[in-house]
Amino acid sequence: MSMSSGQPAASPQTNLLFVAMKRVWSSIMPFVVIGAIWQIAGQFFPPFLFPSLIDVFWRCLEILMTGSMFADVLATVGRILGGLVGAFVIGGCLALLMARSQAADKFLAPILSLFQGIPALSWVVFAIIWFHGVEFRIFFIMVVTTLPAFAFQVLGALRAMSKDLMEMVFSFRPTRMKLFRVMIAPAVLPDILTAWKVNLGNASRVVVVAELVGATGGIGYELLQQQQLFDMAGALAWTLQIVFFVLIMQALLTLIENVAFRYRAVSERAI
């Protein structure tokens, strides 16, 4: 006797489409809820407090379509990436030094911890007092605020490398360059990508503060203008530019992770 549900079975394509739609919906749903709450609030408060999201959308579009405004977005993006690359290079070198030498570790670890304890806003004030050039000021602020995290994260990754695997690679007598390429770089890459993800969020917050106080262009500077005009739609539109940038970068890093770490076993049971 055969059993039948009485309904035709869905084709694999339909199933795939359904799964894809479910996935898209689950990822946009939280934003839809927040947007709905905002729109409802807009009905009860004046526009300078809760402007319509449609207004915000048009302001976003204006920023993206107007050359001079988009240049401000690009300036901020450039400052974030420049600062992060600088902090990563310097932090990575310091981490290598600390991993190789106990004396360097003893000397540098307290300094990095001290740096980590200094608020970003203090660094902004120091940079304004110390330096004249706007770009160098912001670069300095970005580097010093993200450097300790990069250094500690890379150091942690270097120290967590498997001694057994290291010994195995050593048994083939690699040159320094080959040891780095076949063992060290792939072993620390997961932690480096995580460090980038974490520091990207930190850097995007710090850059806005730095631009707000010490720059004549960029998203932070534009936010200051919106604050002075009491223009909430503009403030939101400029804020969304940096949010979009962070989301795009996070997606890019996730893509790199998916390709680079396809070797990882995936358990069918979630944590």
Binding site: D164, M168, V182, M183, P186, F261, Y263, R264
Partner: peptide, 15 residues
């Protein structure tokens, strides 16, 4: 000189 270790010690990121 080549070594076969107690564990396989394969690099997990390599095929």
């Amino acid at each position: 000189m080549a070594i076969v270790f107690q564990g396989d010690r394969l690099l997990p990121w390599r095929t």
